[in-house]
Computed example of a mutant assay.
Amino acid sequence: MSKQRQEQNLPQSRDSGYTIIESLIAMIVVSVLMIAIAPVMAYSVATRVQARRMELATQAARAYIDALRTGAIKRNDPTNPGFPIQDMSAAPAFAPPPASTNPQNNLYCVNFDETAGCAGSKEFFVQGAWRNPANPTDPTQTGYELTVRVYRADGFTGGTMKTEQQSVANSALGDPKAPLVVMKTEIPASTVPGSYGSLCSRIRDPKTGQISTTACK
């Protein structure tokens, strides 16, 4: 009796489990779902990368503004380019930079990585423009309004750079020709005592302990 029962149960065990057709259908369904989800995931990652890039560009703009306020960037200094150009028109605020990265184009490089030069994805070119209704010969003596644009260094590969800031919400990885950040601020006159002048007047030589007369030069 036991042998007969085993022989009757044998065909049932052979028919159990998934068939090849069922497996193929399951693979097709999963593939369709992955194809539908993949663009959303890619866009989400691209948006996150662009948001991080804009965050670094904001830091670059602040570093540039601080350098102007402290006098680290000077006028007519070929060894340290980046002083803002004069804003001669109301709209657009000032012309976009050319595709070339010649230092005479008044572009200031901010490098966030360890590689030399200014051409990578974590390196930025900052363009500034000063505006003063009096149009002085030396704007540092009177103070001025400063407009700043921050561009990706890897966007200077030829062609015309743009002036309008891109949006992180609809740009995904963004347009390398458009500025990541555009901001305005005021740069005070270097001849008027302020927080920087106060700091300079209190800097002492670490060796002699005396007030340094060359700290602000």
Rank of each mutant, 00 (worst) to 15 (best):
M27E: 15
I28L: 15
V30T: 10
V30N: 02
V30G: 11
V32P: 04
V32Q: 14
V32I: 15
V32M: 15
L33T: 10
L33Y: 01
A36E: 13
A36S: 15
I37R: 05
A38F: 15
P39A: 13
M41W: 09
Y43S: 14
Y43I: 02
S44L: 06
R48F: 01
A51N: 13
A51M: 12
R52G: 06
M54H: 12
L56P: 07
A57N: 11
T58K: 11
T58F: 03
Q59G: 09
A60G: 05
A61D: 14
Y64L: 13
D66V: 05
D66M: 11
A67K: 11
A67T: 07
A67D: 15
L68F: 03
R69Y: 00
T70W: 03
T70N: 03
A72S: 08
N76A: 04
N76F: 10
D77H: 08
N80F: 13
N80R: 14
P81L: 10
I85K: 00
Q86F: 03
Q86E: 14
S89E: 11
A91N: 14
A91F: 02
A91H: 06
P92V: 07
A93S: 15
A95M: 04
P96H: 02
P96R: 01
P96Y: 00
P97S: 12
P98V: 08
P98T: 09
P98G: 12
P98E: 07
P98L: 03
A99V: 00
S100Y: 06
T101H: 03
Q104F: 02
N105E: 15
N106R: 08
N106S: 13
N106I: 01
L107P: 12
Y108M: 09
N111W: 03
T115K: 11
A116D: 06
G117V: 02
F124P: 09
V126S: 13
G128N: 12
R131Y: 15
N135I: 01
P136S: 08
P136W: 04
P136M: 05
T137V: 14
T137Y: 02
P139C: 07
T140Y: 12
Q141Y: 01
Q141N: 06
G143P: 00
Y144G: 02
E145M: 08
E145C: 01
L146K: 04
L146E: 10
T147E: 14
T147A: 13
V148F: 06
V148S: 13
R149Y: 05
V150Q: 09
Y151C: 04
R152H: 07
D154V: 02
D154C: 03
D154I: 01
D154F: 02
G155N: 05
T157P: 07
